[in-house]
Structure formats: C-alpha cells, structure tokens
Design a protein around this nucleic acid. Sequence first.
RNA 1: GGAGAGAUGCUAGAGUGGUUGAAUAGGCUGGUCUCGAAAACCAGUGUGGCACUAGUUGUCACCGAGGGUUCGAAUCCCUCUCUCUCCGCCA
Length: 428
Amino acid sequence: MLDIKFIRENPELVRQGIKNKNETDKLDDLLKLDEQRRELILKTDELKHKRNQVSSQIPQMKKAGQDVSSVLAEMKSVSDQISDLDSQLREIEQKLENILMFIPNMPHKSVPVGKNSGDNTVVREWLPEGFSFPKETSNEKTLDHIELGKKLKILDFERGAKISGSGFPLYTGKGATLERALINFMLDFHLKNHGYSEVFPPFLVNSDSMRGTGQLPKMAEDMYYIEKDELYPIPTAEVPITNIYRNEIINENELPIKHVGYSACFRREAGSYGKESKGFLRVHQFNKVEMVKLVKPENSYDELEKLVKDAEDILQALKIPYRILLLCTGDLSFAAAKCYDIETWSPAENRWLESSSCSNFENFQARRANIRFKNGLTKKPEFVHTLNGSGLATSRLMVSLLEMYQTPEGKVIVPEVLQNYTNFNVID
RNA sequence: GGAGAGAUGCUAGAGUGGUUGAAUAGGCUGGUCUCGAAAACCAGUGUGGCACUAGUUGUCACCGAGGGUUCGAAUCCCUCUCUCUCCGCCA
C-alpha cells in the first residue's frame, strides 16, 4: 500500500508509476475521497471537542445544583450529528481503502520501463564448466522431464491427477527422495552459508495475512480458499513468514531479520491451460524454499543483490545453467518495486524456465501489514523494507536438474551435493 | 465438540459510568552520588489521524476487534477473535 500522503503530494509521479505497471488509474476518485475524508474529520473533531468539554462540566454543574436538562438535550443533538458524520466518514474511508489497496507499488528508478516480459533485460548468465548449448543440427535424443519421470518411475502425473486433479504431481521412489533431498540441501545451504534462521510456517493463513503481503484483494482469483474456516492455502511461504511480524514494532538491533523456510505452495492458476501446463511447468501444488528479509530502508537494495546471490549459490552448487533477468516495469508484480527473476536452463524445452523471483517491496507490504522498527536516531517507528526470493522452487528446478543430469542411456546422475542427502548416486 | 475463566501500556498488575492516556511495581533511558560499579534518589518513557500561525502547537481517536446504550464508556450491552482450565475426541 502506498502512503496516501505521498500520493496526495506526488499525484503525477504515482500516475506515471501506475501507467508503467499497466494498472488501472483511479487516482482522481482517490484524491476526491481523500479531500472529503479530511473535511469530515475536521467537522467531527470539532464537534467531539465540544462534546468533551461540555460533558466534563456536567458533573460540576450538577454538584452546584444547576438544572442541566437543556444542556443534556443540546449535547444529545451534538452526539447525533457526530454519529451521523462518523458513519459518513466510515463509508468514505472504506471506499478510499478499496481504491488504495488496488494501487500498485511504484517501480524503483533503476527498473527499466517496458511493456511486458519481452522488455526484460538479461543481467548475467552462468554456465557450469564444460557446458554448451546444443546445436540446432544435433539429433542427440534429449528426454524431457516427463519422459524421464515415466521411464525411471519417479514422477507420476497421471496418478497425481487421479488423486487430486491435473497439476498435482506425485513423486514416487527415488523421485520422492530426490525432492526431499533437494529441499533439505537448500535449507541447510542457506542456514550454513548465508546466515538465515529457519522457520517452518503454517500452510493455511487468514485473510489479514493475505492482505498484509498484497495477495489480497487483487489476486483473490489465484488463491485457493477454504470457506468453512475462512483460510487460504498459501501460494508462497512469503505470506506466513513476512506476516510473522504483522502489527509489531521490531527493535532496530534485531534488523536485518533473515528467515528461510520450506513450504508447499498452492496456486489455482486459473485460466492457464495448454502447452505451458504440461508436467511440472505449471502446477497447482509445488515445493519451495523461500528466503524472507526485513531490513532497514537504507539497506534494502544492497540486500536485494545479496538475496539474488544467495539463490544463485544454490544453482552453482548444483551446477545448473541459469541467467538473471531484471524485470521491466510492465512485468513487475503488483507489490514489487524491483525484481530479478532467475531462469534455469531446460535442454529438452530448449529454453529458460523461471525458477526464482527475488523482489524488494520497499515498505509496500510493511505498510499493509504494519511492520515497523524503532529508529534509534529519531526514536520514531518507521516501516521496514521487506524482501523475498525463492531459494528455490523445486518444480521448475527439478525439470532442469533431471534433464541436465540425464545420461545418453536415459539414467539420471544425482548432483554431487545431493548425494549425501539421497544416499544413492544414480537413478535408473 | 461441551462447560467455565480471561484479554488493560515494554512486562506484571489496579481500575465497574464523570480531568484516567490510564494507579502501583518492575524494566528501559537520562541525571545525582561514586575512582568506578552496585545500591539509593530524581526525572523521563505509547501509537495513529487531522488542522494550522509548523510548535517544548492545538485537537481527535486508541485499554483484544467491531458495533451499540449514554450528555459522558477501559468500566454497561451485543457480535466476533484469541488465550487458559476441565471434559470428550484424536496424530
């Protein structure tokens, strides 16, 4: 959420930001409501002041034996006016918030303006030693992850669909072990090498949490929802982990807070069918290790760079080719100010797959979730900056991993760093 | 799921209709004392909105959340949430 004061003082800046993010502009309505709101507050505060003053005099008047009935009658009408104005105010504030909650975060000035994913820029690329992209003329048979999964009996998409529906993958045998190994490896790696502290969050959250990180109200259609208990299965561990600190004031010396946690992630992916949705490429449930940071505002962009590197380290340890993309304004998500995507290479698809997304939300989420720290200098509470990044999502990563590590015979070698976790070195 | 108890500031804990933003104690910060420290003593110690003459300013709101009664609510009423205890059930 943006600060209404900031919008009031910089309407044209905000208008441009909304436009660059391809969002709808309702600023005029918003500013009009803001003005109405302030007028009403002025009126009610004045009346309340009067009421407070007179009310405090009534006991003394009574004690002095004065007749207070006319004063009471007058105050009754003042109170009626107040409650009338208050209900008008409530209505306006509701409308105002409804618009405010749909205004996206402003892109950072270092984010290139662009229409869509075509305008994203490649920041860097990393290839393991000895790796080269296949030639167009190559007729070497590269199995894709679905074929490998079937052949090696490690992935069963059909029976996953039988159990739950399409998009709910079933891992079997060494596939299940490999998935678990990957999760444990990534968690341990971040804990040992990157100074995160571990959390294991709830997978169902309430609507306040969803609003806090910005999934609600805008993305309601993308969420699962359990009506009976008014709970949402999380689309990412970002939601519960960031909301750990909702409505709290953190001690300055506790910052930066860096958490890493595993969760299953649930996404409805409404309206996405076809080629993109085969196998692991788009699923309703997947596993992800998520990194979340709460930092002081002045550090947040340094912390974003470090966050990306933390995710990269995993891919380098796994020796999987990847590249880093800086998203343009048009591809930036609603709540993000700046975002890098990490894409891993899929030899069978012959293209890059998005495996991680690392974002700085500045104080957009912190304002919604009311997460603050006490500034030691000013002694005043200030909103923290929040960041998060996948480190990483296993589904897309598993595609790259299986395909990259396959042998000409169609076996899969287990990456060296995972062998201690799997206790086998090859899947055949 | 059933029965009961509770929710007040950083913490503990008073307060059941009228200067109560809130007693008291602890904590924390600053000061006095001291070679230094402890003890003791003194002082300070919330958040948010709105306005303007922009201040050591005025004002409003906030005692789990949201409504209501009243001239006036931390205090009375209703709804919800959470916590605790006992019973039942269960991994």
